[in-house]
């Protein structure tokens, strides 16, 4: 069964004071998220990521289209018992302590008191807040609030976890902890659907990604396929190669850079790599490293987003919109 499915999901917001006109926040989004995968919704600010999550939780209503979570229509609130949600920049009642808030969240799922106490204790430990369990949330740092947010999203042991920008605003240690937590959730066969604009995190975590820009889906696919699409060169680093060796290699290489005793260059043609290695070994030069240069998620993202943005700018210029 699909964990999440959106069917032509669209949302217009109406802007302007006197003459309201629609601004398309999301346009006919069709997405399928399989159970057990980590799915990343990527896009620059204003792409429609948060709108998508708000639509899934009926915090805003679709202009057209619909969506299903775990096979149930999003209008059916009962499905919320099987999912968890961390909103972007979350706020929780600051008169409560972390433990009290998680207890309150667990009560909303009607979890019996003994199981609730156990679950809250476990979660506080998982997100590293056991020491601060009795501290009022008003004294928490942004990173600590984010951890409470993650804990409350997991309080019902959900099958699908939706995280809106879970990593932004955290320090490097906090980011690593959240990444590890997401990977642990995958090990537990949970589905994680998260939005982010931090591509390096998506690259580390996601099985599949979808890229949104200006409310439009630009691409969706398996990260491993996207990244293996573009092995565009092979990078080789040699130590102390003789000038004659470099001269013989020059017809196969490009982007040669010498740093101290090391020389780095790229071999653009895959078929030339064997020849380059043969020359290098015959000449007795020492190979420090050899790396296939793949397309990064950032390259892919920019390749998708930049033309769309450029096109939108041109359209605005044509219409004389500033």
């Amino acid at each position: 069964m699909l964990a999440v499915e959106t069917l032509d999901l669209a949302k217009d917001y109406y802007v302007g004071f006197w003459r309201k006109r629609p601004r398309k926040a999301l346009q006919a989004l069709n997405l399928c998220v399989e159970s057990g995968e980590i799915f990343g919704l990527l896009g620059p600010n204003g792409a429609g990521k948060t709108t998508t999550l708000k639509l899934l939780f009926r915090l805003v209503f679709p202009t057209s289209g619909t969506a299903r979570i775990l096979g149930k229509d999003i209008k059916d609130v009962s499905v919320h018992a099987r999912v968890g949600y961390l909103p972007e920049n979350p706020y929780f009642y600051d008169h409560l302590t972390a433990e009290e808030y998680l207890n309150f969240a667990a009560e909303l799922f009607s979890i019996p008191a003994p199981a609730r106490r156990r679950r809250v204790g476990d979660l506080l430990e998982q997100v590293g807040l056991t020491e601060a369990r009795d501290v009022p949330l008003r004294r928490f740092s942004k990173g600590m609030v984010q951890r409470v947010g993650i804990a409350q999203a997991l309080v019902n042991d959900p099958e699908v976890i939706f995280l809106d920008e879970p990593i932004s605003g955290l320090d490097p240690l906090g980011r690593r902890e959240v990444r590890e937590l997401i990977l642990r959730l995958k090990e537990q066969k949970k589905t994680v659907f998260f939005s982010t604009h931090i591509l390096s995190d998506a690259e580390l975590l996601c099985d599949r990604v979808a890229i949104l820009n200006r409310g439009r889906l630009l691409g969706c696919g398996e990260l491993s396929k996207i990244l293996s699409l573009g092995v565009h060169a092979t990078e080789i680093v040699l130590e102390n190669p003789a000038p004659e060796t470099l001269a013989e290699l020059s017809s196969y290489t490009s982007a040669l850079v010498q740093t101290g005793e090391r020389v780095r260059f790229e071999v653009p043609e895959q078929s030339d790599v064997a020849k380059v290695l043969e020359i290098t070994l015959r000449r007795g030069a020492r190979i420090v490293s050899l790396n296939p240069l793949k397309m990064s998620l950032e390259d892919y993202f920019l390749a998708q987003v930049a033309p769309a943005t450029e096109k939108a700018r041109e359209k605005q210029a044509r219409l004389g919109v500033r």
Partner: peptide, 14 residues
């Protein structure tokens, strides 16, 4: 205003 409603309505609360 404080957006605390998001985490309440995302639970099985009508």
């Amino acid at each position: 205003e404080r957006r605390s409603i998001y985490s309440i309505l995302s639970k099985p609360v009508m």
